[in-house]
Design a binder for these strands. Sequence first.
RNA 1: UGGGGCGUCGUCAAGUGGUAAGACACAGGAUUUUGGUUCCUGGAUUCGGAGGUUCGAAUCCUCCCGCCCCAGCCA
Length: 566
Amino acid sequence: MASEESKPASNFIRNIIQEDQEAAKWDGKVQTRFPPEPNGYLHIGHAKSICINFGLAAEFKGKCNLRFDDTNPTKEEQEYVQSIKADVRWLGFDWEDREYYASDYFDTLYEYAVHLIQEGKAYVDSLSAEAIREYRGTLTAPGKESPYRNRSTDENLDLFDRMRKGEFEPGTHVLRAKIDMASPNLNLRDPVLYRILFAEHHRTGKKWCIYPTYDFAHGQCDSIEKVTHSICTLEFEDHRPLYDWFLEALRIHHPQQIEFARLNLTRTVLSKRKLIQLVEEGYVTGWDDPRMPTLSGLRRRGYTPEAIRNFCERIGVARRDSTVDVAFLEYCVREDLNRISPRVMAVLRPLKVVIENYPEQQAEMLEAVNNPEDPGMGTRQVPFSREIYIERDDFMEDPPKKYFRLSPGREVRLRYAYFLTCVGVLKDKQTGEIVEVRCTYDPTTRGGDAPDCRKVKATLHWVSAPHAFEAEVRLYDYLLNDLPESEEGRDVSDFKSRINPASLSVLSTCKLEPGLSEAKPGSRYQFERMGYFFVDPIDSKPGKPVFNRIVTLRDTWAKIQKQSQG
RNA sequence: UGGGGCGUCGUCAAGUGGUAAGACACAGGAUUUUGGUUCCUGGAUUCGGAGGUUCGAAUCCUCCCGCCCCAGCCA
């Protein structure tokens, strides 16, 4: 269950439940369910739904079931069931023993269908799929009734029974509800309830060769599970009259369907179709690629479940289409990571610095704070010596006005160490590239404070060269570029043209403070001034951790640079 | 041009007849041994538009405009 964050803001679903409770509807009970179809991986959009369903149930002392909507054996697989369960659990929710499957109810659903036939509310249609489509009419023109629509109850019963027994080929017959072929709501134009599918089901095996459609299964499953509030996304709104029609016709427990707007995120695609393209066409390494918005991807990237839950709570629940700025998600992770991450020094793009007045063979240990946000996390000792590495970006030979890091003649502070002044630069004769910076240090500033109280404008992180631990660090950036200004909020169908070619850069010569050689897979650190990093649980080997950048720190300097560049 | 929804700051989002919360982003400033964190400050005379009802409207009525969803034997 989600930890108690700040007071939840009101949202219309919460209000409905509150009113129901006050009116003692449902005997004050709240029963929800998260109903994924096991045909793909869960993503951040599903997280919103999970948080709403499990969150609301918990908030009102109710229960939330995990129910797999496995009515289509041609698309669903056991593999997905496992990943979905792992993701929901990781997010922090517990369905206890309430792990259900639509397929658990196939017998009951079949009985319901027979009942509808007996009541004259369903019939076996023998039109082809194409014919059914033609008969359905269009958005503006009414449909027409199938010639098979008025078969006798006995004939329908017999045909349906034989469908079940496997006497017919797929596509030859179908069970339909008898509603209204002229309804302006196409969902009510005699929807299909059962189709013949000679496919082995991941749970029921070969027991069935007819399978219920979503429309016929979903509401009845909700009913069987005594769901009170059946929360789904907006595209099912048009199905609600049908949802209600079945429950009414069957006279069984009738949950209330409530629809909300699905999540959209900037710089992100969340449709299964697009996500699968990214995977299959090799733009990413898999469903759990750290750049993917899947829960497995976010997990591998290093996001915390707390941050995601918080994000889902804070974006709210409403009925209007909206696109949340991905910066908001990042804000939520940073907030959590800032609190919990031990700080550490790591130089990603090393530049050698030689401190000329520091004794040749000397080395000393300096004390560093593990987390200024949490003194309880203690301190550690970091080695310092005559040769160190600093970030290439922290030195400029000819700095612009607002740059206040190291440059010739300028003094800066090495974090937890000494004040350092640049006295020279060594360049490669051929390329002109800076290969080494020569400096002097002020021995009286040990720890980072000057006895004469003089100030420096910058504090740099560093790593002692002879003590450095070299490791691979993977810098992840947005997979997609932002939508062009003119198309804001518009069509994203050509999303592949927005793919960011620099969404991943692998740095293999990063210099880290020695303690990091023992970093545990699955742990998180803040590399001071660089960002938050996660020890990849899959590619890390004992003594050889690989780091994934979860998110950068907020970077005011980068912003200034961007502005001055126009 | 059938039906169903939705339109409140750049982005989310409260508000349900009593005179526009909050968050992110953005812009200033303070503190700071992370250009991090934290902390102040600034911003919608206005709620898609136009009319109307009312002492009073984002909230009620009318018309208009825009966007989303629906023609799977997918979910």
